[in-house]
C-alpha cells in the first residue's frame, strides 16, 4: 500500500504545532495503528491516550481531519485520500500532544447526586426489560467525552464549564431520572445548577457519539421537558402537592442509601 502522510499536533500547554510524518500503512488499519507505528519508529515520545483499541473504553478521542472521533475505530481506508490530520480535543486543556486534561468531566461526575433505590426486597428487585432499556441506552456511554468536546456551550465558552454538565452528564441525569428504582429528584438541580437550559439542541453531540446514543432526542429533550414540568407546570405542581406521586428528594422520601 502507498505511504500516508500524517499531520499530528505536537506540543504542550505552552503551545505547539503540527508535524508531518510519512509512514507505510497496511490493509485494514485504523488511525491508532498508524500513531502506534510512528511511536515505535520515528517519535517514541508522541503522547496519545489509549487502552482497549476496540471502541469500548473511550480513551483515544481526538479530532481527525477536524472531526471528533475515536482513533481506534476510524479506519484509514474510510478517510479521504491525502494527508490525515490528527489534533487533540479542543475543548479540554492540553497535557501533551494528543492527550488532554479531561478532569472537568470527573469533577462533573462528582457533583451528581447518587442513585437512591428503596431497600431491596427478598429475592431481588423486579424490573421489566422495557423499563430498563431506556436507561441501558445511556449506560452504553463509554465516556470518550467526544460529545463534551463538540458541545459549543463549553467548546467556545470556557467560563460555562463551572455550571454546565454537558451532554455526557445530561444522559446520566436522564438515565437516573428514568431509572425504575431511583427515588432521588434531580430535576431542579440539573436545570438550576447544571445548565440544562444552555443546551440549544443542535444535536452535534448525537452526531459524534461512537455508541450511537440518541443523546438529544432520547435524553436531553425529555430531560428538559421533565425539568420544566417540575418547575413551571401549575397543574403538575398542584398535583404533586396533593398526591405526591412523582419522585421525591431522598430526604423527603426518607430513603436510606443502599449499603
Amino acid at each position: 500500500m502507498a505511504d500516508v502522510t500524517m499531520r499530528i499536533w505536537r506540543g504542550d500547554a505552552n503551545g505547539g504545532d503540527f508535524q508531518e510524518y510519512t509512514i507505510a500503512q497496511n490493509e485494514g488499519e485504523v488511525v491508532l495503528d498508524v500513531i502506534h507505528r510512528i511511536q515505535a519508529t520515528e517519535a517514541p515520545d508522541l503522547a496519545c491516550r489509549w487502552n482497549c483499541k476496540a471502541g469500548k473504553c473511550g480513551s483515544c478521542s481526538a479530532e481527525i481531519n477536524g472531526k471528533p472521533r475515536l482513533m481506534c475505530m476510524t479506519r484509514m481506508d474510510d478517510l479521504p485520500e491525502g494527508t490525515v490530520t490528527v489534533a487533540p480535543m479542543r475543548t479540554f486543556p492540553i497535557i501533551r500532544d494528543l492527550v488532554t486534561d479531561v478532569s472537568f468531566n470527573f469533577a462533573m461526575a462528582e457533583r451528581i447526586p447518587a442513585v437512591l433505590p428503596p431497600p431491596m426486597p427478598e429475592g431481588g428487585y423486579r424490573m421489566f426489560q422495557e423499563d430498563v432499556e431506556r436507561g441501558q441506552e445511556f449506560r452504553k456511554c463509554i465516556e470518550c467525552f467526544l460529545c463534551q468536546d463538540v458541545c459549543h456551550v463549553i467548546r467556545d465558552h470556557e467560563d460555562n464549564k463551572e455550571h454546565y454538565a454537558g451532554p455526557r452528564f445530561f444522559i446520566r441525569y436522564a438515565e437516573l431520572e428514568m431509572h425504575p428504582l431511583d427515588t432521588n429528584d434531580r430535576r431542579d438541580y440539573v436545570r438550576q445548577e447544571m445548565g440544562l437550559g444552555y443546551c440549544n439542541i443542535t444535536k452535534c453531540c448525537t452526531e459524534v457519539c461512537p455508541e450511537h446514543i440518541h443523546i438529544t432526542d432520547n435524553a436531553i429533550i425529555p430531560l428538559k421537558e421533565r425539568a420544566v414540568d417540575a418547575h413551571y407546570d401549575p397543574i403538575a405542581w398542584l398535583g404533586r402537592k396533593i398526591r405526591r406521586q412523582t419522585k421525591r428528594t431522598a430526604a423527603e422520601a426518607g430513603v436510606q442509601p443502599a449499603p
Binding site: 442513585v115 433505590p117 431491596m120 429475592g123 431481588g124 428487585y125 423486579r126 424490573m127 421489566f128 426489560q129 430498563v132 436507561g135 441501558q136 449506560r139 437516573l176 431509572h179 428504582l181 431511583d182 443502599a258 449499603p259
Partner: peptide, 20 residues
C-alpha cells in the same frame, strides 16, 4: 450481583422482571 443493582446497575431482565 444483587448489590450492584442497589448501586444502579441495569441488567437485562427475564419476562417476570428478574435478572436474566
Amino acid at each position: 450481583v444483587y448489590e450492584l443493582e442497589q448501586w444502579g446497575a441495569l441488567f437485562d431482565r427475564t419476562k417476570d422482571g428478574k435478572i436474566l
